[in-house]
Amino acid sequence: MPFVIKRKPLNLMEKLYLPEIARGLSTTFKKIWEKPVTLEYPEQRPTIPEGYRGVPTLVRDPEGREKCVSCQLCEFVCPPKAIRIVPGEIPEDSEYAHVEKGPKEFDIDMLRCIYCGMCEEVCPEEAIWLQNQFSMSGYSREEMVNNKDKLYELGGTLPDEHFKWNKKKDAAAKGGGH
């Protein structure tokens, strides 16, 4: 339902206009002496709040295992189709053979990324995180595509306490829960 905001009728001083201008001028004049709120960027950096959605990165668990299992859900959910994954199999002689699958290639095109965070939300392995880096720049389009190595370099280690896959390995060692 539409409603009408009633305008307060102007009083005489306001109708004269000039006093109001003077009031405005005094306001702006006072502002001149206030401290600027500008953050002078390259030297001063903003404090990144909790939950900030910066550049998406891949993380390792505290043991150094790459958490991503290349389920490609992030690639599927990514609205601008910035993520490209080539899945691969973890070889049987690997320490993490029980995880079976990991990304062979993992590219995020930062020219396409819109920092929506849906990849982080959809990830069943908590492997992709939008961390607090907010400025990505480069001289070529190729440079703006973060490959797997770059993503792990940016991502670092997640202080994870679940070790979902380890539990499974332990169960196998104990005889398989039968």
């Binding site: 206030e34 401290k35 600027p36």
Partner: peptide, 13 residues
């Protein structure tokens, strides 16, 4: 400069 001062900015520096 004046615009930046009035607006709480720094201006060309």
């Amino acid at each position: 400069k004046i615009s930046s001062w009035i607006q709480g900015r720094v201006g060309p520096n």
